[in-house]
Amino acid sequence: MNDVVRVDGLRKAFDATRRSPGIVAVENLSFRLGKADAIGVVGESGSGKSTLARMLVGLTRPDAGTIEFDGRVREWRERGRVARLRRAKEVQMVFQDPYGSLDRRLTVEVALRDVLRRHQVDSSAADARIAELMDSVGLESRLLASRPHQLSGGQRQRVAIAKALAVEPAVLVLDEVTSALDVSVQAQILALLTDIRARTGVSLIFVSHDLAVVGKVTDSILVMYRGQAVEQGPTSDVLRRPQHPYTEMLLSSAPGPGWRPERVAELRAAFAVAHDQ
């Protein structure tokens, strides 16, 4: 009963009409996530992982299934400011594109203050909170006066994380947040996320195509293929003893010692044949 997130039978199809079922993006997907836990959602492009992320935060409405935060089922009909602010506290999201995910007009300070004001932090407390947020994402306070175009990709992503944390959400959804970053910056952001989870107790849903990256920050992994969860389990089990041939193929695809592209291509062809039967 201590689950922060409970997802049951989630389904979404696009362009569905009365005659055709449309393109199924997510099909019968369920999972649980405990407090301060981190789950990774892995899949290739078109696997439905981004649709899942958008449904979790409420940007896309599912066709069927339920999403529960802390025992409260998400209601789509609910409107009004109180409901909006409550939902904001349930879950926040950080996006892939560090260039587009910040309002280019606002300085870091104005952006953070804006979030805090919206969530009724009075202005005297806001200063202390802003300093605390900047510190927690590892940004120097001199950057408060900067606008997004003056920041590097990694710094922007840190600002986006700070903005999400300012709401004090129970869950943070991270959609490919390190894909656009250099490896050294990626490593820093991954370390930052682990640190934030330990300190604030926020639960993480980490969406990525990169199994090795997901392995760094999560306790469990959900592997998606064509909208369905083909494998789900503790991170170390999934990475060390994959049960599903698709997971196995994904693991073999990542370049590393002994990797040969020809071998991966063969595996993929074999998988496609086996799956279509």
Partner: peptide
């Protein structure tokens, strides 16, 4: 995406 981010803030 920043527009989505605003939306999620409520």
């Amino acid at each position: 995406p920043y527009v989505d981010a605003y939306r999620l803030q409520g």
